[in-house]
């Protein structure tokens, strides 16, 4: 009976998955959904004969949880964000790319060749990057928007009309920039001040919402909303009065990266895939599709010209510095987790 079920299910799985095992090579990618154009995957298969299978996740943390629950060893590459690369490296989930293994490693632009989250690019290559800040509806507020005060100490007319991303990392990083403190502080007075500031600011917020961060701005439910730059551009195209802010205190920068996973079943294919994505033309196709920045030299000519002029992707000279979300040690992180729980209890 059991065998029968298993056999019929296997037959069904084969029929449904419709992936032939006859290909020259295979590659299993763990990726966000709709974050790579299908044309590009087809091109990769055409060039290398490698069949690509894709699995998808909806957050960096969900991917980590799944890998730690035993899924490591079934995927070749994944696409974690910056801080997640260093967490995964720390957890021993990443394989090291040896010197000279990647033919196109030299294509990585100097800005991204030695990032803090993966010094020397031992495990990863750049995929897409962008920023996280907030948008303000200039139709309902005419003052200066380039300050984190808009989020944490808003003028009266914006109070109660603010949506925050429901993401601890991004909210805490912005809060640290607002107070001018480090992201992984161990200074008790500063941490208490951070906790108190957030409690106070919460009274001004309407909601925490990531999934419909764009929609609440466009619909006018809120006048201020934390948002990623790419979503900001989409929101502006739907409502012209929305303006993306680059606070003078600074803003959050993020970068998604293709990493080589430990125990990758098709390591050679993974290296070929990474080399493929380091070709300027190919990664430009990703940017044209996903509307985010890339980290490879010589891609300019393949890029949609509109990308170069997007106000959301091109910070003005007076903008503060962009910072990555930092990874704290366990004891420090425990305090930040507690502050976050306090904020949402």
């Amino acid at each position: 009976m059991k065998h029968m079920i298993k056999a019929s299910a296997t037959a069904m799985a084969l029929a449904l998955a419709a992936t032939g095992a006859s290909a020259e090579g295979k590659l299993v990618v763990y990726h966000w959904f709709e974050y790579i154009p299908q044309d590009l995957l087809d091109k990769f298969t055409a060039e290398t004969g490698i069949e690509v299978t894709m699995d998808t996740y909806d957050s960096n943390e969900a991917m980590l949880a799944s890998l730690k629950a035993g899924a490591i060893g079934t995927y070749d590459v994944a696409v974690p964000g910056d801080y997640m690369v260093s967490i995964m490296a720390g957890e021993g989930l990443l394989d090291t790319i040896a010197d000279g293994e990647l033919a196109n490693k030299g294509n990585i632009s100097s800005d991204w060749a030695d990032p803090s989250f993966d010094p020397g690019r031992m495990h990863s290559i750049p995929y897409q990057w962008g920023s996280t800040a907030f948008m303000v509806d200039t139709a309902s507020y005419s003052g200066d928007i380039n300050s984190t005060d808009i989020l944490f100490n808003p003028p009266a007319e914006l109070s109660g009309k603010i949506n925050m991303l429901d993401s601890q990392g991004e909210v805490m990083a912005m809060a640290a920039l607002h107070l001018g403190m480090e992201q992984c502080s161990t200074d008790r007075d500063k941490l208490k001040a951070l906790n108190a500031m957030l409690q106070e600011a919460k009274g001004h917020w309407a909601s925490f919402n990531s999934d419909t961060a764009k929609e609440v701005l466009v619909s006018g439910d809120v006048s201020v909303g934390m948002i990623y730059d790419g979503f900001g551009a989409k929101a502006r195209s739907e409502k012209a009065s929305l303006k993306y802010a680059f606070p003078s205190q600074g803003y959050v920068v993020w970068m998604d990266n293709v990493v080589l996973l430990k125990d990758a079943p098709n390591r050679d294919s993974a290296i070929k895939f990474m080399d493929f994505l380091l070709e300027p033309e190919n990664i430009a196709a990703v940017s044209n599709y996903a509307r985010y920045g890339l980290g490879v030299n010589g891609a300019g000519e393949f890029l949609d010209p509109e990308l170069a002029t997007l106000p959301e992707s091109n910070p003005p000279a007076e903008a503060g510095a962009g910072v990555f979300i930092e990874v704290c040690d366990e004891a420090t992180q425990a305090v930040y987790d507690k502050i976050w729980t306090n904020l949402k209890k």
């Binding site: 957050s59 949880a65 993401s167 990392g169 909601s207 949402k344």
Partner: peptide, 18 residues
């Protein structure tokens, strides 16, 4: 508005959150 945790989001956060 997710300003206050519910049980579901609290537990979810422990497994696939920060």
């Amino acid at each position: 508005g997710a300003k206050n945790f519910m049980i579901g989001s609290l537990i979810e956060e422990q497994f696939k959150g920060n």
